[in-house]
Design a protein around this nucleic acid. Sequence first.
DNA 1: CCCTTATTATCCAAGCTGGATAACAAAAAG
DNA 2: CTTTTTGTTATCCAGCTTGGATAATAAGGG
Lengths: 209, 209
Amino acid sequence: MTELGVRERQKRETRASILQAALDQFAERGFDGASIRDIAKRAGVFHGLIKYHFENKEELWKAAVSFLFERQATEMANPEGFDDLPPAEQARNWLRRYVHYCAHHPEHARIMVQESLRDSERLRWAVKEHIAPVHEIARDVSSRWMQAGIYPAIPYHAIIYIISSSAQAPFMLAPEVRHSSGVDVMNTAQIDAYADALITMLFDHKIKD
Amino acid sequence: MTELGVRERQKRETRASILQAALDQFAERGFDGASIRDIAKRAGVFHGLIKYHFENKEELWKAAVSFLFERQATEMANPEGFDDLPPAEQARNWLRRYVHYCAHHPEHARIMVQESLRDSERLRWAVKEHIAPVHEIARDVSSRWMQAGIYPAIPYHAIIYIISSSAQAPFMLAPEVRHSSGVDVMNTAQIDAYADALITMLFDHKIKD
DNA sequence: CCCTTATTATCCAAGCTGGATAACAAAAAG
DNA sequence: CTTTTTGTTATCCAGCTTGGATAATAAGGG
């Protein structure tokens, strides 16, 4: 591949650490509440450096969110042989992987919620740039899975919000879960247990009456 | 009842409007992001007045949250004859009412999420003072409904977070829903449609394979 | 050995913060 | 009808944080 000098290599590393620090800080405090100084401190660099790498706070936010969604696309890519599975197994397999993604990157749900709580211009940007395309795909998959009897015949947006919110909730709200249930949801055993529970609730259970 | 003078009456009114304005503003911006001045402006009063009615910002927050949970208890009280319904009907009836509550008071989920995103001291206070008691009750009900086959045999905290998050999500995230799906979830028809969808998904559907 | 550039150190003007104090107006009490 | 109480408003303030600009620095690359 391209030979990377020490210079360029370090530059990319600091850029990446700024991006992740920005994600965490924006997720925790929201756009206005997260100061450039705090982000820099979190990334272990000097705050002026952020202005050097990114035009301004707004651009930093967009860069961070773009990084977030690109990473999601990578990590959520279907594994080898996925398409050969029967639909019901596809659904279970996908949902389990999605739960793990939510657990490992709680900042994703958090940062999106932060913007949605204020109906910002940035939210509209994110919807247009990243969320809408994802929903587009989700719609198609939902449509197929609905015909296969995986999902019931309910509106698409209902499916999307039921699935995504219940997969994200305990990890997005990890502190609340810890304080109220005493459960630490952030370890592999618990994550899998929750995935099992969710799959059971959504796919393998109906009321007896 | 107690005779209320004009004075006392107006005082309670402004107090109430400050509380609701505080709820909305805290929900939108979080504790630090919501300034006393903005809350006052939202309530249509002078900002010094807040200091007069409430000791300080912290106490205002607690008063607002207490008001929130007390109102929830009132509005979510089971209707006449609820206990005589068969369990499956109880579950459907309760869930529908809960969806309506979430739709009419999206600030509830929003304000709790705000605090949970930062793991604040206030979150711990709210958990101890209000959330834990609610969970206590939810545990008991879940236990009974689990034995009746309404809920599958999965951990309590999983049930709680699946139900509550999926009931709250589209209303808490109303702006995102509007921008991405073009649906305005905040009208009665849509609320009932979502309640139907959720009841179907959770109670009346399982995968066919 | 010099030039480029990634990084750091100061500095600044502006805005907003929570809260204190003083003025005011109208209801309640006498 | 006057006086007192009290709910409400108008100013004021010291202090902190903010995003961003500018100047200094140090180390890599040619």
